[in-house]
C-alpha cells in the first residue's frame, strides 16, 4: 500500500506491477504464499472430517499448505535478493548472510516434508537418494550462485545441520506423554528428528566445484555439480547409516535410540535394520541411475535459476 499509494516515488521505481498494485516481486510472491496457506485451512478441515486425522505428511491439503510456506520463503528470498543486488558494498555482506540463512531454512523445510521417506531404515535404498536429490541440490545451488559468496552451500547446509541437531538435543529435555493410542512404547519426553543428514559434505564439495567452474557453460556446470552432489552424499551417508544402526549411536548426541510412541516393535526402524525396497541388485542400480539423473537435472536447473536470480533488482 505504501509503495502503491504513498508519495515516495523511489519505492515505485524498484517495484513491479500486479493488478494495479506496486510492490517488490518478493512481496507479491509472499502474499500468494499466505493466500495458499489460508486456502489450505478449510480444505484440511474438510479432509480431516472426510478421511480422518492425518497420519501422514504428504496429503493434498498439506501440499497446498507446503506450496504456501514455500511461496513465503521464495518471496523472502526474492525480496532479499532484490535488496542485495541493489545494496551498496557495505550492506552486501549482511544481506548475503540473511539470504543464505533463508536458503538454509528452505533446505530444512524441504527435508522436513520428505521426513517419511528419509528415515535411517531407508538409507540403503535408491529411493532415499532420489528423494534427497529432489529439490535439495536445486535450492543449494540456485541460492549459492545467486549469492555469489564462497562457501554458500556449506553455510546453508550448516544452517540445516544446526537446526537438526538443535531439535535433536533440545526437544528430549521437555517432558511429554502420548495423548493418542495405540501406544507401542512408553514415552516420557518429546521425540526429536533423527540426526541430520550429512549434507554438509556434498555442500563443501559443490562449493569447491562451483568456485572452480565459474567459466564453464551453465549446463556442464550443473551436470558436474549434480554428479558431485550425489556421489559425495552417497559416500558419506551410506556408511553413516551403518553407524546409526549400531549401538554406538544410541545416545543423546546421535539420538538413534529415540523412537516415538507409535513405532511398531517389529518394524525395521525399531529393530535397527535396513528395509530393502529392491527385489534385486539391478533394480537398485536402476534406482540409483534415476537418483543421479534427478540430481543432475536439479543442479542444472539450480545453476540456471541462480544466474537469473543474479539479475533480480525489484
Amino acid at each position: 500500500m505504501t509503495t502503491t499509494f504513498g508519495p515516495d516515488r523511489s519505492l515505485r521505481d524498484v517495484s513491479v506491477r500486479v493488478w494495479g498494485l506496486r510492490a517488490p516481486a518478493g512481496a507479491f510472491i509472499s502474499a500468494w504464499g499466505g493466500l495458499a496457506m489460508l486456502a489450505s485451512a478449510p480444505f484440511d478441515d474438510w479432509w480431516h472430517n472426510a478421511y480422518g486425522l492425518d497420519v501422514r505428511i504428504v496429503s493434498p491439503p498439506h501440499m497446498v499448505l507446503a506450496a504456501g510456506f514455500f511461496g513465503i520463503e521464495l518471496g523472502t528470498i526474492m525480496l532479499l535478493l532484490a535488496f542485495m543486488n541493489r545494496a551498496p558494498a557495505s550492506a552486501e555482506r549482511t544481506l548475503q548472510s540473511l539470504f543464505l540463512y533463508v536458503g538454509g531454512m528452505a533446505v530444512s523445510e524441504s527435508l522436513l516434508l520428505k521426513m517419511e521417506y528419509i528415515s535411517r531404515s531407508d538409507m540403503h535404498n535408491a529411493l532415499f537418494y532420489t528423494v534427497v536429490s529432489l529439490g535439495t541440490p536445486l535450492i543449494l545451488i540456485a541460492v549459492a550462485v545467486a549469492a555469489r559468496r564462497r562457501w554458500a552451500c556449506t553455510i546453508m547446509a550448516g544452517v540445516y545441520t544446526a537446526f537438526g541437531v538443535g531439535f535433536l538435543w533440545l526437544l528430549p529435555l521437555f517432558p511429554a506423554e502420548p495423548k493418542l493410542g495405540p501406544v507401542y512404547r512408553p514415552v516420557t519426553h518429546f521425540i526429536p528428528w533423527e540426526f541430520p543428514l550429512l549434507l554438509i559434505v556434498p555442500a563443501v564439495v559443490v562449493d569447491l566445484l562451483l568456485q572452480r567452474t565459474v567459466e564453464w557453460r551453465p549446463i556442464a556446470r550443473g551436470v558436474i555439480a549434480g554428479i558431485a552432489f550425489l556421489a559425495s552424499f552417497v559416500a558419506v551417508q551410506w556408511p553413516f547409516a551403518d553407524f546409526l544402526m549400531a549401538p554406538l549411536a544410541r545416545n543423546r548426541f546421535f539420538g538413534a535410540h529415540y523412537m516415538d510412541f507409535n513405532t511398531l516393535p517389529d518394524s525395521s526402524y525399531a529393530r535397527n535394520v535396513f528395509f530393502s525396497r529392491h527385489a534385486d541388485a539391478a533394480q537398485f542400480w536402476r534406482g540409483m541411475l534415476v537418483a543421479l539423473l534427478v540430481s543432475c537435472v536439479m543442479a542444472a536447473v539450480g545453476v540456471q535459476a541462480g544466474r537469473l536470480m543474479q539479475k533480480v533488482r525489484r
Binding site: 501422514r56 521417506y117 531404515s121 513405532t263 511398531l264 517389529d266 518394524s267 535394520v273 525396497r277
Partner: peptide
C-alpha cells in the same frame, strides 16, 4: 501411513 510407524511393507526386509 508413515512407513516408520507402521512398518509398511517392512516384512520384506
Amino acid at each position: 501411513v508413515t512407513t516408520r510407524r507402521n512398518g509398511l511393507g517392512m516384512a520384506m526386509s
